[in-house]
Amino acid sequence: MTVRIITRLDIKGPNLVKGIHLEGLRVLGKPEKFARYYYEEGADELLYMDVVASLYGRNNLLDIVTRTSKEIFIPLTVGGGLRTLDDIKTVLRAGADKVSINTAAVHRPEFIREAANRFGSSTIVVSIEAIRRSDGRYEAYTDNGREKTGLDAFEWAIHTAELGAGELLVTSIDREGTGKGYDLELTRKIAKSVPIPVIACGGAGRSADISQVVWEGKADAICVASMLHYTAVKHLRSLDGFEFEGEGNIEHLKANKGFSKVEESSIAAIKKELAAKGILCRYPLEEKVA
């Protein structure tokens, strides 16, 4: 089977942002422009995560989803603050293919079953954000790592799969944005205990981290963000200057600074590396996007 490279785009209001430990957000630009670039570069899927969904209205996000889905024909997952079946329906109608849910599922696990029954299991991605505790256990969190749940991440993963989750997005909050590599133990334990695909998220710093989380972490798919965003920024800037929207920290862009802890890479370079290590993925792409 082939491993998927999923480009994760964190969204705040109208902007693509990226942070460390999901805090200290930096503004990077318009998400749909990045999405289009990643689509053309050979991303296997896209993930839009509304990182401050509870603080902002949804119209920005829905507009971005609609604009994206009209010109991008790979699977698009959307998450962040989806609490009701109607929320899911709204996002799917805007053009998402799948949704990612976390907080609402933790508060009421039956929500997973209801969503899977209504929209099909394959549409429902359950997001598990985990933090490793000093005793070696992993606890599930919500709200981008801000709220404890008291749930053991491994038990919770098995339970969500039983309730009808189609895939699990497993994020290490400890590693998120650090470039120190994926949390292999977290990913492997969950991947081996559930029958559904597991997407590893949080910590990619270099291509070798990605092949490692496939071989050792048993991940079925991988989320990548920081490694790709600055290459994309440079590309987009070379096209038409660069437009910024709204408020936020853009000083780093003016200063032309990347993420110092992360190797700047591209989807093609990552896939080439995976292929060289004998990991099957959609590479090379046969046709360029017209």
Partner: peptide, 10 residues
């Protein structure tokens, strides 16, 4: 020994 459903590019 493989995941079901198959999700991805083939």
């Amino acid at each position: 020994e493989y995941k079901i459903p198959e999700v991805g590019w083939n």
